[in-house]
Structure formats: C-alpha cells, structure tokens
Simulated assay, not measured.
Amino acid sequence: MPHPDNQLACCRLPRKVRHLHGATAEYGMIRGAAATSPRGRGGSDMQDFRNSDEHRQELDRLLDEIRTLAPVGHHIALHVRALQPSWLEVTYPRTWTDLYAARSYAIVDPTVAWAMVNDGACRWSDVDLPDVGGVMESARDHGLTFGAVAAAGMGVSRSMCGFARGDRELTDAELGRLARIVARLHKLFEETLPKLTDKQIEILRLIEKGYRQEQAAEMLGIGLQACKLRLIYARRALGARNTTEAVAKARAAGLLT
C-alpha cells in the first residue's frame, strides 16, 4: 500500500475515506484496500455535507455490527464509479493491504469479479471463479482465512464490500445479515447526497466541460444573472465555497454522470 504522496490525484470532497490501523492505499477492492484521497480521519460521518445525526447514528450501528461479524477486518466501498469509491473504510491488516496493492490483486481477485455482477452476499469459499493470481491462498496466509463478499446497487454505481474472519465460516444467517447491511449502506449514502435540480446540474456539467458562465448561459438560452443564481443555489446545496469546488463535489457524488 503506497504512502499518501504516491497516491492518485483526486477530488477530496465529498469523498469520505476512513483508513483505520494507519492504512492508506491505492484503489484495490474487496480483499484489499482502496484509497483515492489523502489519509482520512476516524469517525462515522458518511458525508462532509447534508449529514443528519440520525444518519450518523445508523451508520455507527451498522459498522459496529460489521466489526462483530468480521473481527479480522473489512473493506467497505460505497457507490463505486469508474473504480472510484464515494465512501470507503478499510480495516484489514496493513501487511495484507500492502501486499494486495503491490501485487495489483484487484485485477485478478475473483471476489471483485463476483461483486461486479452479483447482488447479495457470498462466502469467499463459494465464489466459483478462477483464482489465477492466488489471491485466496495469499489472503489465508495473512489471517484472512474465512470471509464473504457482498454487493448492492445496479448500473454505474455499485457498493462492494469484503468481510474477514479467522476462526470459522460465516453462517447463512450472518451472510443474509451482511447482504442487508450492505444494501442499507448503499441506500443510506444516497440519502445523504445533496439535492440539486436538473437545471443546476446541467449548468455544472457545462462548467465542468470548461465553458465560462457566459457561454453556459447562452447555450442554455438564459440570462447571465439566471445562470449565476443557479450556481449560487448549487453551491449552497453542495456546501461548496466556490463554483470549482461545487463541480468537484457534484462530480465525486456522481451527480454529473
């Protein structure tokens, strides 16, 4: 797992990254670690904006339950778009995440392949896909002896998670619970997203493409002041200090796709 100065450049907000046990990494997935922004801090905030106490409390409850079900560690990547998670938490052992990133295991990890096309949860031992890179055996060598993969969401935005134990296989009931937790986390994240109107989004898309406000207004057939007003309301909704930050936040939240 590379250090922060070796990581890919990215938009810092609103992406929320939590790396526990001092871990930071480039984006690996279900068994490895992922990071596309600098070291995150602890805590339970799901987003840096539009975040209620009720959402935070529910998130904390779900994460506490996950830690009980997966005592060796977990990897939670919510709303992954183009290999970029909008929210991420990794608690796998540092030695494993280092190796996972160094060997680019994400490319050949059978659990990643499973999570890309399936919803629900599956034990690692039940993933019926070739392990050409020896990811499973290597994981066992690092204490990730048993575990499960879980995924939710359709289309361009999926949530994909991994959970590890060292003592035994997860029961059917535990698998079902993990599937429901991941589905709820996927939905919970959506509930924290800022609410923009279609007109605000179309202006942000034009600004993202490099058009000036005057050009965007002309292309949309509106006055410059109307264009500026929509951007002001968009910035307020996103909690952005300026238009550049608003575009970055909207892009990271998947609102401009």
Rank of each mutant, 00 (worst) to 15 (best):
I76N: 00
R212Y: 14
P38S: 07
A34R: 03
G210N: 08
M219C: 07
R15W: 10
E137S: 14
R31A: 13
G176Y: 07
E169K: 06
L224W: 02
G162L: 05
A226M: 08
A35N: 04
T197R: 02
G32R: 04
C11H: 03
A70S: 00
P4Q: 03
F189L: 15
N242K: 00
L170Q: 06
H19K: 04
G166A: 14
L229G: 01
D98E: 08
A246Y: 06
I207Q: 05
A82S: 11
S37P: 02
R205S: 13
T244Q: 13
I181H: 00
A226G: 01
Y211N: 10
D109S: 03
L231Y: 00
G210E: 09
N6L: 15
D53P: 09
F49I: 15
H55D: 14
N242S: 02
A217S: 04
R94Y: 03
L224V: 07
E89P: 12
E190W: 03
R205C: 10
K199A: 05
L255D: 06
V135K: 01
P85W: 07
G43Q: 09
R61T: 14
A164F: 02
M1H: 08
E54L: 12
Q215C: 00
P2F: 05
I107E: 01
A250Y: 05
D5P: 12
K228Y: 01
C161S: 03
N6M: 15
L170N: 01
L99H: 02
A183S: 12
R241K: 10
A148I: 12
T95M: 11
Y27A: 02
L144R: 05
Q7A: 04
A248F: 10
T197W: 05
I76G: 04
R56Q: 08
A77P: 02
F49P: 11
A139Y: 04
A106M: 02
L78T: 07
L8T: 06
M136R: 14
T192Y: 06
D60A: 15
G134E: 09
I66M: 01
Q213S: 08
W96I: 10
A33T: 04
A152F: 05
H55P: 12
V135L: 11
E54H: 05
L196E: 08
Q7F: 01
A77I: 12
M160V: 08
V149E: 04
T243V: 15
S44M: 13
D167S: 10
R39I: 14
T145C: 03
R140Q: 03
P14D: 12
T257K: 13
L178S: 07
L175G: 03
G133T: 02
G155C: 13
